[in-house]
Design a protein around this nucleic acid. Structure first.
Length: 488
RNA sequence: CGGGGUGUAGCGCAGUCCGGUAGCGCGCUACGUUCGGGACGUAGAGGCCGGAGGUUCGAAUCCUCUCACCCCGACCA
């Protein structure tokens, strides 16, 4: 069975680390809190990027690139914003090294101190809005719909591969609009886009909702979120979309002339998903034998293993099948490495999460069939070689659908309603998961609940039915349930 | 940033208490036999013991300082 992977039942955190490292997604680097994304992990991220980028472009956005460095003064222009990020910024203070006088290596040249220190971007609102000021004059310049793919740095105290690293990759969309309504519409549209991506591509079901003021992005009027539930019953904030109101427009003096020839501040949004999604992908589908990747994101959707090793007849059959699969836009790899045995390859591809494995042996060829094994359920089927490509195409779609279905079933089974404090605590302690409960709407109560249970309000779900009730903690009246969970 | 733990060959570890110049398993290389679920045999290669100081005739081992990682908290995408 799987070598060296700690079972989830024994130690979930260790299982996660084992999966990420042993399936070749990423490694720790020599730099504190920073990871090396390895080719297999980066290939999955590229699949995500490719699809998201297409979805952004299909909704009218274009890509651009803004600087890594932000003048320190920019960050302090928006009070809430600087407060939110000040504690975790990397700061560039000098621009030159020199040989140490005692020959011990290089040291920072004290004469090279910067006049204005630079912040390594934790997010780009400030530099972008400083730029937008010059780009926007008229309502005819709006809306401005720009995305950038970039790295950002947040100096985290405690890091975990993909879930929280000091440097991470993401996309950040920054849009400017003429009206409040249009900006809110953009914010909600992107949230839907993220949810669609999460469900249809990652096979990761999410709850769409709005954050409480306490959990809101620093500088936003409203933060929308998609929340997913991991296999250990903890929630993962997987993407956020912010309605920024006119906060940044005011801070950076971004105005436009409307049709009535009046100056107005523009309305803003920003939104992002990051390499954290990789962590969500792992913790939604993978098992004790290794990674499980939904077919739509898998670098290789199909691997063909010759049994027992490559031979002319097998190679011919494999090449024919490969052509048929590629004609159907299926990503297929022929593992014709003669130095490894079939059993080893089986285990290796299972560890790395390839959705479908085809085994072609001499005995199979005589009978005109191939063995097809699916990673998600571990089922094996003998299929006639002639119709194999069509079978596999359907199988990939089936795997994609089944992964979403089983993740949704798990999520639903782990979603509870609590009406009393005792019940609330018991669910969190015994099972974890999502808990719908009434809340009196105050930050004070929210913090008190967090203090007592470690659970936070993940969101106020968008499709929430109104329901009169009493706050789980204070007993004060409440008009709807909110979604609680312990979270990553 | 607090508390706990770990750094010795690519990976996982023993050796550290009691100082004497490093070992085991896996992996790696070559050859042979194998090959339908992580093969076996034989012969090899590979380590200034995380780093820097110090004590000592002599340090993986003792002392001081550092760095990194893991786990648990506080903070956060």
């Amino acid at each position: 069975m799987a070598k060296e992977i700690t079972p989830r039942s024994e130690d979930y955190s260790q299982w996660y680390n084992d999966i990420v490292r042993k399936s070749g997604l990423a490694d720790h680097s020599a730099v504190r809190g920073c990871m090396v994304i390895k080719p297999h992990g980066f290939a999955i991220w590229e699949s995500m990027q490719r699809q998201l980028d297409q979805m952004f472009k299909d909704t009218g956005h274009v890509n651009a690139y803004f600087p890594l460095f932000i003048p320190k003064s920019f960050l302090s222009r928006e009070a809430q914003h600087v407060e939110g990020f000040a504690k975790e910024c990397a700061v560039v203070t000098h621009h030159r090294l020199m040989n140490a006088p005692d020959g011990s290596g290089v040291v920072v040249d004290p004469d090279s101190r910067l006049e204005e220190e630079l912040i390594v971007r934790p997010t780009s609102e400030t530099i972008i809005w400083n730029t937008y000021k010059d780009w926007i004059q008229s309502y005819r310049d709006l809306p401005l719909l720009i995305n950038q793919w970039a790295n950002v740095v947040r100096w985290e105290m405690r890091t975990r591969l993909f879930l929280r690293t000091a440097e991470f990759l993401w996309q950040e969309g920054h849009t400017a609009h003429a009206t409040r309504e249009e900006a809110i519409e953009e914010t909600r549209m992107i949230l839907d886009l993220y949810a669609t991506f999460a469900e249809e591509w990652m096979a990761m079901p999410v709850i769409k909702g709005v954050k409480t003021p306490n959990e809101r992005f620093a500088g936003a009027e409203d933060t929308y979120t998609i929340e997913a539930l991991m296999q250990d019953g903890k929630a993962l904030q997987s993407g956020t979309s912010h309605f920024l109101g006119q906060n940044f427009a005011r801070a950076f003096d971004v105005t436009f002339l409307n049709k009535e020839n009046q100056q107005e501040h523009v309305w803003a949004t920003s939104w992002g998903v990051s390499t954290r999604l990789m962590g969500g992908l792992v913790m939604t589908h993978s098992d004790d034998d290794g990674l499980v990747i939904p077919p739509r994101l898998a670098p290789w959707q199909v691997v063909i293993v010759p049994i027992p090793k490559p031979a002319p007849e097998i190679n011919d059959a494999a090449q024919k099948l490969i052509r048929e699969l590629r004609d159907r836009q299926i990503r297929v790899h022929y593992d014709n490495d003669e130095t490894k045995r079939p059993g080893f390859k089986f285990a290796e591809h299972e560890l790395r999460g390839t959705p479908v494995r085809i085994a072609i042996g001499l005995r199979d060829l005589e009978q005109g069939q191939v063995e097809i094994a699916r990673r998600d359920t571990r089922e094996k089927t003998m299929v006639p070689a002639d119709g194999a490509a069509g079978y596999i195409q359907k199988l990939l779609e089936d795997i994609q659908a089944r992964l979403l279905e089983s993740a949704r079933k798990y999520r639903d089974d782990m979603t509870f309603h609590a009406d009393t404090w005792e019940e609330f605590e018991r669910i969190l302690d015994d099972k974890g998961g999502f808990v719908y409960a009434h809340w009196d709407g105050t930050t004070e109560t929210e913090l008190a609940i967090k203090e007592k249970t470690k659970a936070t309000i993940r969101c106020i779900p968008l499709d929430n039915p109104p329901e009169q009730g009493k706050c789980i903690l204070t007993g004060r009246p409440s008009s709807q349930r909110v979604l609680f969970a312990r979270a990553y």
